[in-house]
Nucleic acid binder design. Structure first.
Length: 272
DNA sequence: ATGTCGTGCAAAGCACGA
């Protein structure tokens, strides 16, 4: 069983590489973020041709979350109960699905923009809503027997080692104490620390700058990838039932290379 | 600090978000 999470930064623009990647990597389940698609424009038929059912929840121009599965796709939940709005709008940033008995959430956490920006408060409120929903769903699970995970673009670097130069981030979002505390609360709420811990990543590419802290995102701007200026912000938070089945977690850096790449690389989880 | 992308609108240039 292979589960992946990937911020594709427009499904339309990524389609050629995405289809090739599915055929090459053969994931069973893929959680996507930033599809930038409407439900009407979602290319379900092209995914179906490769054997994937899909569910999509999208605004159109911004956001958009989705799930592909070739092992069943049920109990689709669009948005978090009590999810905060921004400028009065409910944004498509959360999609819950059940696949092969795995309860999974595809999450695109708000960026925050700046510490004094309303988007930052929105980000913290969103993380609190994730926490409430995770806690509610975990209470329903039979004695932690069912695997549960929160996957996606959290827009938070868990530690100082998860950004290319911490000095660049002083006073900025993604590294602030409240964001990291919200992430830590989430980790506690799932009965787990992150699954994408360094010791679980033996298959990280040989040319990774720091294999203990593989990045998942490099800005398109400023030649972020060629210069190695990355961040680890695409995360997997999982309960014990999920963690107990994890054989390997790795960042697919090849998907970040070359023309037509998203600014995020997929995080791939191989389970027994 | 911002060299790149992607989108939508309404028009091939800009505003916005990241």
């Amino acid at each position: 069983m292979r589960i992946a999470t990937w911020n594709v930064n427009s499904v339309k623009a990524r389609m050629p590489r995405l289809l090739a990647w599915l055929q090459d990597r053969q994931p069973d389940v893929v959680l996507m973020q930033e599809t930038k698609s409407t439900d009407a424009a979602w290319p379900a038929a092209e995914f179906a041709a490769l054997g994937y059912e899909s569910a999509h929840y999208g605004d159109g121009r911004w956001n958009g979350v989705a799930a592909l599965s070739r092992v069943g796709l049920d109990d689709v939940t669009r948005a978090l109960p009590g999810q905060p709005t921004f400028d009065g709008a409910l944004e498509s940033r959360a999609l819950g699905v059940t696949a092969a008995g795995f309860r999974l959430w595809s999450l695109y956490v708000p960026n925050g923009r700046a510490l004094d920006h309303p988007h930052y408060a929105y980000k913290l409120e969103f993380l609190a809503a994730v926490q409430r929903q995770a806690a509610a769903e975990l209470r329903e699970l039979p004695r932690d027997a069912a695997p549960f995970a929160l996957l996606g673009d959290f827009n938070v670097a868990p530690t100082d080692q998860d950004v290319w130069d911490v000095a660049e981030f002083v006073g900025r979002t993604h590294v602030s104490a409240p964001e990291r505390q919200a992430l830590e609360q989430l980790a506690q709420g799932t009965g787990s620390v992150e699954s994408s811990l360094p010791e679980l990543m033996p298959r990280a590419s040989a040319d990774v700058d720091d294999q203990r802290h593989p990045y998942t995102f490099w800005e398109h701007r400023m030649l972020g990838f060629p210069k190695g200026r990355g961040m680890r912000i695409d995360l997997v938070l999982a309960n014990a039932a999920f963690r107990g089945r994890v054989g390997d977690v790795w960042v697919d850096r090849d998907a970040r290379r070359g023309q037509g790449a998203s600014d995020h690389a997929p995080v791939v989880i191989d389970l027994d």
